[in-house]
Design a protein around this nucleic acid. Structure first.
Lengths: 200, 200
DNA sequence: CGGAAAGTAGACTATCCAGTCTACTCTCTG
DNA sequence: CAGAGAGTAGACTGGATAGTCTACTTTCCG
């Protein structure tokens, strides 16, 4: 009852995976038939599991939305913590999957504004809020300059991802994940937010 | 010979403008007929001027590619110069047109990789290179910490645009252009790159 | 005036696609 | 074995679209 009944049973899962891959790589524009083919499933089977292409897309996006949950505990060294966060953040966003998902969501945001907003809030915004909370604690105990933690989180996430995301999206570059870059960025951030003389 | 012959003469220009607007706002996906309608021109007239939809799109993008050419003279105060640059940069990238163009280019980069690369190089990359050159001069004369000017330019452009671009692209926010933000970013950048004690 | 150049309207072809429907097969279970 | 449940192949509908073609009109200019 193994290989054959599996074919029957997890068609839905195979469909989700195929749709995920194919939506990411070719955009919402891709045809239903290509998704079904990729899942090695008949078109009708797809419609047995999902009422429409839109619903399947929403399902895929919802499944793909996961904020960058990184150890942001705050007990250890600030620099080490931010390094770990930075590496995880960059790995997630600058991976081929992360870039492709971003591309698709940006492209389809006008068509699916609610979905795009959810993606934004549960993805980038959630990660930034967690980071801001950590930074606030670090500021509180004097490990960082007392400043607006939301602003600081914006700056760090921007420095970590922006330029290389552009390179990946528009210039089709793939060698984006140099760990040295994370350290360079974190040190730059720490210079800007070092606990210093002046603060209000 | 005025209003009537104009209709004949500048059909090409009207087509380009209509295509620019419509490609930006609805993506490459938009139909040829909508472009022709928008330009108040027959479909065949469009094909008299452009051999295909792809060619028209390429033409529009090429016309729209203009690097952010800002006064980056270097004689005046560094902070003032960077403020002017930052405001111009943000106005360009975070305007509805800038966001829409970015969205379209990101979406169509897989289909038009060469065009996307040109957009990247003549847009964001060119602006960053000019900024890096300015920063290098400022570092040379001791107005900024001696560091890698390309890296510094990456950090500044990232801090200026990244978060608000996400907001505009995914969260459909429109109130992105607060001038105070530019100053906040520039001051953050100057803290990170202040001419300081240690340098190699 | 008369012809060339450019534009126009719209029919037409060929293609593609989302979604429906039907008739068939396979597999498991009672 | 028999029937239910799930999957399959493929025809079909209705609509959209890029690009071509034809027949007509307008404008300009010699």
């Amino acid at each position: 009852m193994s290989t054959i009944s599996e074919t029957h049973h997890d068609a839905r899962q195979r469909l989700l995976e195929a749709a995920c891959e194919v939506f990411r790589n070719e955009g919402y524009q891709v045809s239903i038939d290509r998704i079904a083919q990729r899942a090695q499933v008949a078109r009708q089977t797809l419609y047995n599991h999902f009422p429409s292409k839109e619903a399947l897309f929403a399902e895929v996006v919802h499944q793909g939305i996961q904020s960058v949950l990184v150890t942001l505990d705050g007990d250890s060294d600030v620099r080490a913590t931010l390094l770990a966060f930075g590496n995880a953040y960059r790995e997630k966003l600058l991976s081929p999957q992360g870039l492709a998902l971003f591309r698709t969501m940006a492209a389809e945001a006008p068509r699916f504004p609610d979905l795009a907003r959810q993606f934004f809030q549960q993805g980038p915004l959630a990660a930034r809020k967690r980071l801001a909370a950590y930074l606030a604690r670090a500021m509180e105990r004097g490990a960082l300059r007392r400043d607006d933690p939301d602003f600081a989180a914006e700056m760090l996430t921007a420095m970590l991802a922006d330029t290389d995301r552009l390179r990946g999206l528009l210039n089709h570059q793939t060698d984006l994940l140099k760990p040295a870059k994370t350290a360079q960025v974190v040190d730059c951030f720490l210079r800007a937010f070092a606990p210093g003389k002046d603060m209000q």
